[in-house]
């Protein structure tokens, strides 16, 4: 058995209503998938906050490094042509 007496950690993602995005809610400790799911249910839906839950082992998540933020995210800043407002529409055109 591991020296940690509190079981592994799992990240909890919740969907608040059908069709909505899953949003990170927090984490729980659990030994296995079922336990993680049940613990997430008992911890994060006490007030009917969710319609669906994902649990993911914490160490299965890879996060971007803040030091790389400039190379990761800045290059997207000048690509204005990806946004609809970039384009000039002829006057009078409808439903576009």
């Amino acid at each position: 058995m591991a020296t940690d007496s509190q079981l592994a950690t799992w990240e909890v993602f919740m969907q608040s209503k059908p069709g909505a995005n899953y949003i990170h809610a927090g984490s729980v400790h659990a030994a296995d998938k079922q336990m993680a799911l049940q613990n997430a249910r008992d911890t994060y839906t006490r007030r009917g906050e969710g319609t669906s839950i994902w649990v993911v082992p914490t160490d299965a998540i890879t996060a971007s490094n803040p030091d790389d933020n400039d190379m990761f995210f800045d290059p997207a800043n000048d690509k204005v042509y990806r946004h609809p407002t970039f384009y000039v529409m002829p006057e009078g055109a409808k439903a576009i």
Binding site: Q6, L7, V28, H29, A30, M35, N39, D42, T43, R46
Partner: peptide
């Protein structure tokens, strides 16, 4: 035995 189970049994 663990905090999570405390919440479950209370539920």
């Amino acid at each position: 035995p663990i905090l999570e189970e405390d919440l479950a049994l209370t539920n």
